[in-house]
Design a protein around this nucleic acid. Structure first.
Length: 92
DNA sequence: CTTCTTACA
DNA sequence: TGTAAGAA
């Protein structure tokens, strides 16, 4: 709520409309990822621009997901950067 | 005290 | 959307 300036009502409603997918703690409280926050901010802007929930869905379906960057890929990338900087090459 | 859901306005 | 109610 603080980061997006949105009310709890709005955030919960957007989740209901499947615009965001917060994870849950033991199926209870919502855990918002940075991506959820970004999405909420975009939703907020689009709504100000008079977009409908439906149109926002289309927008998200198009823009995004040529490739999902997994934590594992990020971990490997960081490892390779470290090897490069230390002058030691070779994968793994 | 806080979040969650449901339901009414 | 806001807010009241009641559960957790």
């Amino acid at each position: 709520m603080k980061l997006t300036e949105l009310s709890a009502r709005q955030i919960r409603y957007y989740e209901e409309q499947k615009l965001i997918f917060p994870k849950r703690n033991e199926g209870k409280t919502r855990q918002f990822s940075l991506n959820d926050i970004d999405r909420l901010l975009e939703i907020k802007e689009m709504l100000d621009a008079s977009f409908t929930i439906k149109e926002i869905h289309k927008q998200f379906n198009k823009e995004g997901k040529p490739e999902q960057v997994s934590d594992e890929k990020i971990r490997i990338a960081l490892y390779e950067d470290m090897m490069r900087e230390s002058g030691l090459h070779g994968r793994h």
